[in-house]
């Protein structure tokens, strides 16, 4: 059927009714005046000398108006509307492009931040481990030096001790020889004294 017809047609009934009422309402008083009855409506006077030319000029004016509107005036307005539509579409495209660009930039920035964070983390880790390694090596060197110093000190102590012990035996032997000489008046056999001192030192635990 006609998809568009019902809406306007329903709508038309009212004005048509209105106009019919208006026509009846207005023609009645007009008809009451006798002067009209003789002449009738000028619109229906087909014998009027201007009746035909009126329509001929109507056709000419309407045709010229149609021609001018369809080929000159309406395309001008249409052009302006098209121009605006194109401009709006262009602007929308530009805006869309800018948005994608901005989105890309944001993504890039996020990526860069993430990368920077990761690299910073890695650098911090590397620095910490390097510092740890250095500290470990430094402490190892220090320990080694200290160990060496301790060992040296130990050996020095041992040397001093043995030297002291050796000196003690000499002093003891000399003292014993001197004591024996003073007591007996005769110098004792050095071999015998030495043996006795050795035995006495061994008894006290000093080899």
């Amino acid at each position: 059927m006609r998809p568009m017809a019902p809406r306007p047609r329903m709508w038309l009934r009212r004005p048509a009714f209105l106009s019919a009422t208006a026509l009846v309402g207005s023609l009645m008083p007009a008809a009451a005046f006798a002067a009209e009855a003789k002449e009738g409506m000028p619109q229906l006077d087909v014998h009027h000398p201007l009746f035909v030319s009126h329509i001929v000029w109507l056709v000419i004016i309407f045709a010229v108006l149609y021609r001018l509107l369809s080929s000159w005036a309406l395309p001008k307005v249409g052009e302006v509307l098209e121009m605006r539509a194109a401009r709006i579409a262009e602007d929308l495209d530009a805006a869309r492009e800018a948005k994608t660009e901005a989105d890309g930039a944001v993504a890039e920035l996020t990526q860069a931040t993430r990368e920077a964070q990761a690299s910073a983390q890695a650098e911090i880790g590397a620095a910490v481990s390097a510092a740890k390694a250095e500290a470990a090596s430094q402490s190892a060197v220090l320990n080694a030096r200290l160990d060496a110093q301790i060992a040296e000190a130990d050996s020095r102590i041992a040397a001093a001790r043995s030297a002291a012990l050796g000196a003690l035996r000499q002093v003891a032997t000399d003292t014993a020889a001197t004591v024996v000489t003073r007591l007996t008046g005769s110098e004792p056999d050095s071999f015998t004294v030495d043996n006795a001192v050795g035995a006495a030192l061994a008894a006290r635990g000093h080899a």
């Binding site: 030319s53 000029w57 108006l65 005036a73």
Partner: peptide, 24 residues
């Protein structure tokens, strides 16, 4: 045989054309 009615047709047409011309 140009009538007073045709004159108004002419004016009507010129008004429409002027509206579109000066509007566009």
């Amino acid at each position: 045989n140009f009538t007073n009615s045709n004159l108004m047709m002419l004016v009507a047409g010129l008004l429409v054309l002027a509206l579109l011309y000066y509007g566009a």
